[in-house]
């Protein structure tokens, strides 16, 4: 039952994320395709690619294939987690710059941000090495009762909370004051997604107490939070492509 929930939600996320990322990379406004990744507006596409990759690598079939290539046991999980953290870092930089929040920029962009992601990646790597994981297991689910695996999982959640935390206030402010109704809705979706992600990191001790069976339910929270953030970002992209701001705040004098 839990496996089915996981497969359904991961498949949904893959279709959702993959579809939007593919659309962004191939849309008429970005005809240069993958080169879009190099531009500031391509950061979202990069985030989509990394996040989709993280989900793809966690699929049991793909995981097994990759495991035969990587030099360490369950190294694929490390790669998937690095992709996910990379996506979070790119999202953090993108939103910190967009919302113009000094606090968020100080924590997420530049040396401090880079140091945080390196520390998190090293933490994930060393906890993987410390754990006893002889056979392939996506998300290390079969070894969830080991302390090193618990730390491994928590580091990813904590890094996500580290990036999203400073963005909470600017996103919340925009969800209240954005003059465009659609913009307020988009920011609200992003805010809900961030709150869910941070809540999961804070509630991690509860997750441990709940046991392995509850893992998939908590994982579902992450999927919902990702979906909310991606939908919010899509809403901003939609508002941009349809020029909703210009249509809503027409400064013309005609009253016809």
């Amino acid at each position: 039952m839990n496996d089915s929930i996981y497969v359904i939600s991961v498949s949904f996320m893959l279709i959702f994320l993959g579809g939007l990322t593919f659309h962004r990379l191939t849309s008429r406004t970005t005809p240069e395709g993958a080169r879009a990744l190099l531009r500031p507006s391509g950061r979202l596409a990069l985030m989509g690619v990394l996040l989709t990759a993280a989900y793809v690598f966690s699929l049991p079939g793909v995981y097994q294939v990759l495991e035969s290539i990587v030099p360490i046991s369950n190294g694929t999980d490390f790669i998937a987690k690095c992709c996910a953290m990379g996506a979070v870092a790119v999202l953090g930089v993108h939103l910190a710059v967009a919302y113009g929040s000094d606090t968020a920029i100080n924590w997420i962009v530049g040396k401090r941000g880079a140091l945080a992601v390196v520390i998190a990646a090293l933490g994930v790597f060393f906890t993987l090495l410390a754990a006893e994981t002889p056979t392939p297991s996506p998300r290390l689910v079969d070894y969830a009762d080991q302390a090193a695996v618990e730390w491994n999982e928590w580091i990813v959640l904590a890094y996500t909370a580290y990036v999203l935390g400073p963005l909470l206030l600017p996103v919340f402010r925009d969800s209240r004051k954005n003059p465009l109704q659609f913009g307020r809705l988009a920011s609200r979706l992003i805010f809900v997604g961030f709150v869910l992600s941070i809540a999961r990191a804070i509630a991690y001790p509860l997750e441990l107490q709940a046991g392995g069976e509850a893992f998939y339910i908590f994982e579902l929270v992450t999927h919902v939070s990702t979906a909310c953030v991606v939908l919010g970002l899509w809403a901003f992209a939609f508002a941009k492509s349809r020029q909703l701001a210009r249509k809503t705040f027409d400064t013309g004098l005609s009253i016809k």
């Binding site: 710059v97 967009a98 925009d174 954005n178 939609f238 508002a239 909703l244 210009r246 705040f249």
Partner: peptide, 17 residues
């Protein structure tokens, strides 16, 4: 007011979207 609202909304949708 409309001009300010337009500038804010347009800037944010351009940066995020």
């Amino acid at each position: 007011q409309r001009k300010e609202a337009l500038e804010y909304a347009e800037k944010l949708t351009d940066l995020i979207g």
